[in-house]
């Protein structure tokens, strides 16, 4: 049962990341030479916030499998984040690479704490 829920959550999370990334990039204006990976930054922060809410609320195992492991897991990504950071670094944009790394870590961590606080705080067995 949990397997199926992970499958469903993953099948929703990956397209959601793709579409969100497109929307964020489009908002930043076609043709403007923006280079900071705002799209991936946004999905990673949003997914971390949602996962914080789930852990703070100590949801049931099936709900966590669907929304936590499946949806949040696939909505967020480390592979895209790392390749983007690499490309920034090797195209002479070391500052942006470092900023992306630090900001993603800090904001992701902060988003989890914020979500958990909003949902009732850490301390439950779900964390």
């Amino acid at each position: 049962m949990n397997w199926l829920l992970v499958v469903l959550g993953g099948a929703a999370g990956a397209p959601l990341r793709y579409l969100t990334d497109r929307a964020v990039q489009a908002r930043h204006g076609a043709g403007t030479p923006y280079v900071f990976p705002w799209g991936t930054f946004t999905v990673n922060a949003a997914g971390s916030l949602l996962l914080g809410l789930l852990t703070g609320a100590t949801v049931s195992t099936p709900v966590y499998a669907l929304l936590g492991t499946g949806l949040c897991g696939a909505l967020t990504t480390y592979s895209t984040f790392s390749y983007e950071t690499l490309r920034l670094a090797e195209t002479g944009r070391g500052f942006l690479a470092g900023a992306n790394l630090l900001a993603s870590l800090l904001v992701g961590l902060g988003a989890v704490f914020l979500g958990a606080e909003l949902a009732g705080g850490f301390g439950g067995p779900g964390v």
Binding site: G13, R17, G52, T80, V127
Partner: peptide, 23 residues
């Protein structure tokens, strides 16, 4: 890339595990 590797890797669980360890 978008599907398999994006779905395989995760940032949210990573961040949540760090938070959980800190907590």
């Amino acid at each position: 890339g978008v599907g398999v590797l994006g779905g395989f890797t995760t940032f949210s669980t990573y961040a949540a595990d760090v938070s959980g360890l800190l907590a």
